[in-house]
Design a protein around this nucleic acid. Structure first.
Length: 790
RNA sequence: GGGCGUAUAGCUCAGUUGGUUAGAGCGUUACGUUGACAUCGUAAAGGUCUCCUGUUCGAGUCAGGAUACGCCCACCA
């Protein structure tokens, strides 16, 4: 500085503008160094445990949507911390299972035949490490207050132990079984999947009308999108009331190309209007086939192998892929004149959500958890949870209603938590470890017995499958307490997540906690919406319609982006909006300047006169009380957006626009008692504003808090107590203060209309509005710079 | 086909239990100010509160229906 003497004290403390890069960096470091967010259990202090979604490692596409959803939850966490809760806020990473494998396969363009299992797992571990690092850096830069010392990854020993314990417990309770059934299979990933892994995709397809030979020598036309399933055809159906076909009852049809006979049956479930009214059933082309097979004891014809090829059942088509076989069959049908016609249609197909491959039914032996026979229980437990927003419970309810199969939890993959089982190859007996030996790796460890307890065979092999990613992550509610060894942390207080994983993570967590402990896994569920781009499209990696998160923080600063995240209520989608981010910066600037203003007077004030409070002081204090009440109520209901609005209305419209103006004459005046009162109220009120803003914009509030906190207060705003309503100045009556406000507005308006500077003094002014001049004459006169009222 | 959500100013959104002339911010326009303020102030323009029907003295708010968009689920012969 060229002329340090000329600067006021406040300018030494407060540079003219707020440098968010420097300050955010500074506080980030201090918070980390002082282990501010580290959880230490304290007897008697209420805890608040947060079960944050463990993301997958594919962290290269973090965007504003991720920021939004994690930040919105974090507002509440910070609020709870200030409310005096001992917050346990660990972060986990879901680094096992198919999502990670798919990510690594894609990134390294892996040819599975040219890489060993251990090389592959090493790559998965490496990517996991990188993913965790990316998240940690971004979360830190955003000021997400997780306790990094309690980070878990789902494949580490403790989570593995908990997942395996869970499986063992379910096994002992008879709630898990291994059985050969037609199951959902992804031919691309080469693994069983579950109903919740499905997604619906529309695609262009052809409806093929195929001639079947009938026993009376005529032909029947069957419409199908899957002619390659013909060799697996086991029956033909029509509706019993369908006049066109009644004569066919109990006769046979001849399957074209393959020339074998199948029975013709009736079923009420056949829709006369769909297709031709004649329907072929194959084992198993779709859901309907499966139903008929199950109900009518139809034979099983397994046409598709686990890698999506046609089996020997397909004759000349054996070994072809499904699409390839379909084309070949259509060509052959067409050449043989059996294809009546083809129509182009748009077909919805179930695909595996990880790879978009249409799923198939294949007969396979898998592990299942029993979930279909007690839907009422899942609904009952779901209702015991507080859903924020409440209508999100509908999604849960619909999902439970639509459950068709038990939860298939085994996956034919490499990178995941192994089942804690060995299997007797002769009698199929399942051999389990002792619980105290968990976690176990059956591939490397010997079973607890050398011979099968059932058949005395020595032919015992490890269970080769690994667990579904949700089978492990659904354990987090009872994993968290294990991390710190405190049983009372279950059920957790809040789980925040986006709505697309209600049917997986949330539902499966309810299932497991119910089965193990007959308890809900979490008391409160906070469901966030999606981040949208500026045009309102969902932000997605595929569209590439986003700025990477680290760039956003770099450009705008953490506080500004967090501020943007308050723009939509919980569960609502939020558009990316640079203007709102700039608004966040504006609020920071305003806070900064108000602080500079107050400190300028505070630093130069050196008298200790007893403060004499005035009407304006009482007024702003009452307004503060109202705001505290409102903000508290909103934060309690997870309505951070409304809390922000209440705080902002008070800060901008009441405090900065009015109160600060009201006290300027007192700050510059000679009355020490009055000046001290104004300063006291300015500082106290501003400090409370900072505290209320702290959960939303933690950096600037922390910086300014250092100047406004009282000696005995916490060193950091983030563990300082949340503001409380304090009644004071009871002897001052401000029931008619609104008249003073109206009068001041009137004078401002008068000056503006008459092109008089607001700072200009006017000798006399005739009031239109009614005001008690004995009471408010000084205030109105000084603020309006009017010397005399007439 | 079933369910849920959203629909208010050019844009982003508030509108509590139905109660006068429907609000804020941003943007636009005009004028003014600029010694806490990469500001600020005063004002203007801008809305048949998606549509229809009903309940009511009175509906943005309640009921029924419709439309559009988004999501969940089902169906996909």
């Amino acid at each position: 500085m060229e002329n340090p003497e000329k600067n006021t004290l406040s300018e030494v403390f407060f540079p003219k503008s707020y440098d968010f890069k420097e300050k955010e960096e500074k506080w980030r470091k201090i918070w980390t160094d002082t282990k501010l967010y580290e959880f230490n259990y304290q007897e008697g202090k209420p805890t608040f445990t947060v079960d944050t979604p463990p993301p997958y490692v594919s962290a290269d596409h973090l965007h504003a949507g991720h920021i939004m959803s994690y930040t919105q939850a974090e507002f509440i966490v910070r609020y709870k911390r200030m409310q005096g809760y001992n917050v346990f806020y660990p972060m986990g990473f879901d680094d096992n299972g198919l999502p990670t494998e798919r990510f690594v396969e894609k990134k390294y363009k892996i040819d599975k035949s040219k890489i060993t299992k251990s090389e592959f797992i090493d790559l998965c571990l490496k990517e996991t490490e990188k993913g965790i690092e990316t998240y940690r850096n971004l979360w830190n830069s955003l000021g997400i207050s997780v306790d990094w010392s309690k980070t878990y990854s789902t494949i580490a020993p403790l989570p593995t132990k908990v997942s395996q314990w869970s499986i063992l417990d379910l096994y002992e309770k008879g709630l898990i079984y291994k059985k050969e059934l037609p199951i959902l299979w992804c031919p691309f990933c080469g693994t069983a999947i579950s109903q919740s892994d499905l997604e619906t995709k529309e695609r262009d397809s052809k409806m093929n009308y195929i001639k079947f030979g009938l026993s009376d020598g005529s032909t029947g036309i069957i419409a199908t999108t899957r002619p390659e399933m013909l060799p697996a055809c086991v029956a033909v159906y029509f509706n019993p009331t369908d006049e066109r076909y009644v004569h066919l009852k109990d006769t046979e049809a001849t399957v074209p190309l393959f020339d074998f006979k199948v029975p013709i049956r009736t079923s009420d479930a056949v829709d006369k209007e769909k297709g031709t009214g004649l329907m072929m059933v194959c084992t198993w082309g779709d859901q309907e086939d499966l139903e008929k097979w199950r109900l009518d004891n139809l034979p099983t014809k397994n046409l598709i192998t686990e890698d999506g090829k046609i089996t020997e059942l397909g004759g000349k088509y054996q070994g072809m892929g499904i699409e390839e076989a379909r084309k070949a069959v259509i060509t052959d049908l067409s050449e043989a004149g059996i294809l009546e016609k083809q129509e182009s249609i748009i077909q919805s197909v179930n695909v595996h959500e990880r790879c978009d491959t249409p799923v198939e039914f294949v007969l396979s032996k898998q592990w299942f958890i029993k979930i279909t026979d007690n839907k009422e229980k899942w609904l009952e437990m779901g209702k015991k949870i507080n859903w924020f927003p409440s209508h999100m419970f509908n999604n849960y309810e619909i999902w439970v209603d639509s459950l068709k199969w038990d939860w298939c939890i085994s996956r034919q993959r490499y990178y995941g938590v192994p089942f804690p089982f060995w299997i007797c190859q002769d009698c199929g007996e399942v051999i389990v470890p002792r619980k105290e030996d968990l976690p176990v790796n059956p591939f490397e460890q010997k079973p607890p017995v050398d011979i099968c307890p059932k058949c005395a065979s020595k032919n015992i092999e490890p269970e080769k499958d690994v667990m579904d990613t949700w089978a492990t992550s659904s354990c987090t509610p009872f994993l968290l307490r294990e991390i710190v060894g405190k049983p009372e942390l279950f059920p957790v207080d809040v789980r925040p997540n986006a709505h697309e994983i209600i049917r997986t993570w949330d539902f499966y967590s309810v299932v497991k906690s119910t089965m193990h402990f007959n308890s809900v896994p979490f008391k409160n569920l906070m469901i966030s919406g999606h981040g949208l781009d500026e045009q309102g499209r969902k932000i997605s990696k595929r569209l590439g319609n986003y700025t990477p998160s680290d760039k956003l923080v770099e450009e705008y600063g953490a506080d500004a982006i967090r501020y943007w995240a308050t723009g939509a209520g919980l569960g609502q989608n939020l558009r990316f909006n640079p203007k709102e981010i700039k608004k966040g910066k504006q609020i920071s600037t305003k806070l900064w300047n108000v602080a500079r203003f107050i400190m300028m007077y505070d630093q130069s004030n050196n008298n200790s006169a007893e403060p004499a409070f005035e009407h304006a002081d009482k007024w702003i204090s009452e307004e503060l009380n109202k705001t505290i009440e409102e903000a508290t109520k909103h934060f309690e209901g997870y309505e951070y957006a409304k809390a922000k609005m209440a705080i902002e209305e008070f800060f901008m419209s009441k405090f900065a626009d009015y109160y600060v103006e009201f006290v300027k004459y007192r700050l510059n005046g000679e009355d020490d008692a009055s000046r001290n009162a104004a300063l006291t109220i300015l500082k106290k009120t501003f400090c409370n504003i900072l505290k209320m803003y702290a959960p939303i914009i933690p950096f600037i509030t922390e910086e300014l808090y250092q100047y406004f906190k009282e000696e005995k207060e916490e060193r950091t705003i983030h563990t300082s107590p949340w503001p409380k309503v304090i009644k004071s100045m009871e002897q001052i009556d401000i029931s008619d203060f609104n008249e003073a406000l109206t009068t001041i507005d009137e004078i401002r308006k008068y000056k503006s209309e008459n092109q008089i500077s607001l700072g200009a003094e006017i000798p006399e002014y005739k009031l239109n509005t009614k005001v008690n001049l004995d009471k408010y004459g000084l205030l109105v006169g000084k603020v309006g710079k009017v010397n005399r009222f007439i």
